[in-house]
Amino acid sequence: MSTRENVAPVVLVPGHWLGAWAWEGVVDRLRRAGHRATPLTLPGLDPLDPRRTERTLDDQAAAVEEALRQAVDVGGTPAVLVAHSGANAPVSLVLDRHPELVGRVLWVDSGPAAPGTAPAPDAPSDLVELPLPDLEVLAQQASLDGLDADDLARFTERAVPEPGPVLTQPVVLSRRERHAVPTLLVCCSMSSAQVLELARGGHPMFAEVAALEHVDVVDLPTGHWPMWSEPDRLAEIIAAAATPTAA
């Protein structure tokens, strides 16, 4: 990891049910190595927010934009934006609206959202919130590989239900400039070969990848939450992307 002062700032956005706390291990490693790292708790994921269930994707995108602007204002360098899992929806909105704020985007076991898609398209339009599923059910939806009993206990204790409007709002994208932002796919529960094959085949989950102009991939074989199962390696990947010599 680099300790040079001109490395890009890093803004980390967690996936569904998570807050800034989910990045603690990774952020600690980045900061000890001299990186400016800002983890976010998106609107709707703060358990003390009395209007939590009313928050929307637009609210979340605005929060990411504000964090990017603050990071860029401090150092004058476009930020490295790290998006895990379901953070792909608000981060895709930000890339569409303000690509100039992002020097590189890292999708952690995720990928850019396709225009017109919603995070939970089958959810009822009047959904109020979606709690974290039982771990047995969750394991059928995403890989829990690499997580120990303490990780799972913390997850279940600190998870916040996802607001309904966040899950049902379609992602409206219109600017081609989003495709020009340099991109790194951090492939965890699915290999990079599998992800790229799905992208070439037009799979809805990765269809946008095929339209990107500058795409790199890195394999980090583990489960869907590498910030807990592989914090050292994930921090190294993020740090490398934030250094001036990163491709």
Rank of each mutant, 00 (worst) to 15 (best):
P9F: 00
V11H: 07
V11G: 04
L12K: 05
H16I: 14
G25V: 00
V27C: 07
D28H: 14
R32G: 13
A33K: 03
A33G: 13
T41G: 06
P43L: 01
P43A: 02
D46Y: 01
P50L: 01
T53Y: 11
T53D: 15
T53M: 10
E54M: 12
A61Q: 10
A62P: 08
V64Y: 02
E65F: 06
G76E: 05
P78Q: 08
A79K: 01
H84W: 14
A89L: 05
A89W: 15
D96Q: 05
E100M: 02
V105N: 04
L106D: 00
D109H: 09
G111C: 06
A114Y: 03
A118Q: 03
P121N: 02
L132C: 10
P133E: 10
D134H: 14
V137T: 15
Q140W: 08
S143M: 11
G146P: 04
L152Y: 05
L152P: 10
R154Y: 01
E162I: 12
T168Q: 07
H179P: 00
V181D: 02
L184T: 15
A193C: 02
L196Q: 11
G202W: 10
G202F: 11
A207D: 03
E208L: 05
A211S: 14
A211I: 00
E213P: 06
E213Q: 14
H214L: 12
H214E: 13
D216F: 09
D219W: 06
P221N: 03
W225I: 12
W228H: 12
A235H: 09
E236G: 11
I237V: 15
